[in-house]
Design a protein around this nucleic acid. Structure first.
Length: 373
DNA sequence: TGTATTTGACCACG
DNA sequence: CGTGGTCAAATACA
């Protein structure tokens, strides 16, 4: 499914961005016809459009500069048990013969990492990127103070979505989480813009389970959207992910992060019907609404109002050799950071936002935020 | 009662 | 053989 590789993925992304720009241009046109619109609205719209176009250009250039190389048919993530209840009911008796079908280490899936910084060390908090994840494991990692959590897409069973992520709190900075994503979302879950930092709720499905239907796109708060291309030029693992803990702008090799729209509203919690652990929310909410907050350590300008931040850094990369790609990679990195820096944050800050936005789970079939069945 | 998380064990990779 | 990733039974929660 996730075929988008290299340039192809970039083009896909480009198309998405352009579509976005088209929509923005249309909105601009509408503004022009609306007598009530004010100058600032124009400015916003124009800035937004400009930003989008700039990003499109950046992506286009990067694609041009980095002709993707096809990646082999990767994966075959195993739908072994979880997928269908193959073992569901009556497993057990047969001699455990686990491995035959499963490939424990999914190599070959696109992989990229992001760092999330959350204000204040609410030890129970974990970054939420807007997708629904289900935790399936936790492991103590050698040399790390905190265990690493393993998550997979909630819809893996239902839709075979191969996306997984690993979340690990930085041992040097409690506020920072290293999140490694692997695989693209092929599910059609609605990515909520209102993502945030979820306080782990003992067991309640805090962030999953919403029935497909519509969903109030609550949340106007700001969000940061970062993008880049995922499968960069080559891939197929091999290159160790490396990222310095102290520098958030470590642009890896010649590849770039996938389009990963994330957000961090300041007070994300709505205990709407669903039900989260009521205990945690208040605490978490409190932790995120500090006054003079500026959790943005790195980039010079970022929406200061945001309560949390994250940055995308690394991503799986190309072959070892491609590593010090010199000009190219650094340029790409710049591209990415610029794209990142672009104010998607402030743009979307103006609420409304078209819901079709940012970038769909890359790679997947045509994105359209359609309802998933 | 159904769903998500926890946790120990299993297994692949290096 | 050590480490990391995944499985799945047990458990917790709504």
């Amino acid at each position: 499914m996730q075929d988008g590789a290299g340039a192809e993925g970039g083009i896909h992304l480009l198309l998405t961005i352009l579509a976005d720009g088209e929509e923005q241009a249309r909105q601009l046109g509408e503004l022009a016809e609306d007598p009530r619109s004010r100058a600032e609205h124009y400015r916003d719209a124009a800035a937004r459009l400009q930003g989008t176009l700039g990003k499109a250009v950046a992506v286009a250039r990067a694609v041009e500069a980095a002709p993707g190389s096809s990646r082999g048919t990767d994966r075959s993530y195993s739908p072994r048990s979880a997928d269908e209840s193959s073992g569901g009911t009556a497993a057990a008796e047969a001699p455990p013969e686990r491995q035959s079908l499963c490939n424990k280490r999914r190599k070959g899936l696109p992989r990229w990492t992001a760092k999330f910084r959350v204000p204040d060390a609410n030890l129970e908090a974990t970054p939420d990127d807007g997708f629904s994840w289900r935790k399936y494991g936790q492991k103590d990692i050698l040399g790390a103070k905190f265990p690493r959590g393993y998550y997979r897409c909630t819809y893996r069973a239902a839709q075979g979505c191969p996306a997984t992520k690993q979340v690990q709190r930085s041992d040097t900075d409690l506020c920072v989480f290293d999140v490694t994503y692997q695989g693209e979302h092929t599910c059609h879950q609605k990515q909520r813009h209102a993502a945030a930092v979820t306080a782990h709720g003992g067991g309640g499905g805090s962030q999953s389970s919403p029935p497909p239907h519509h969903e109030q796109q609550q949340d106007p708060s700001m969000q940061l959207v970062v993008m880049g291309f995922k499968d960069a030029l080559k891939v197929e693992t091999g290159a160790p992910l490396h990222h310095q803990d102290h520098d958030y702008y470590d642009h890896g090799p010649a590849s770039a992060p996938a389009a990963v729209p994330f957000s961090f509203p300041s007070v994300p919690f709505h205990h709407h019907g669903g039900g989260e652990a009521p205990d945690n929310n208040p605490a978490a909410a409190a932790a995120f609404s500090p006054p003079g907050s500026s959790y943005f350590s790195a980039p010079p300008h970022r929406c200061p109002a945001v309560a949390g931040s994250y940055d995308v850094y690394d991503y799986e990369a190309g072959p070892p050799g491609a590593r010090m790609g010199g000009a190219d990679s650094s340029e790409l990195g710049e591209v990415v950071s610029r794209a990142t820096g672009i104010d998607y944050s402030s743009l979307y800050h103006h609420a409304e936002v078209d819901p079709h936005l940012p970038f769909p789970p890359f790679g997947g079939p045509s994105p359209s935020h359609g309802p998933y069945q």
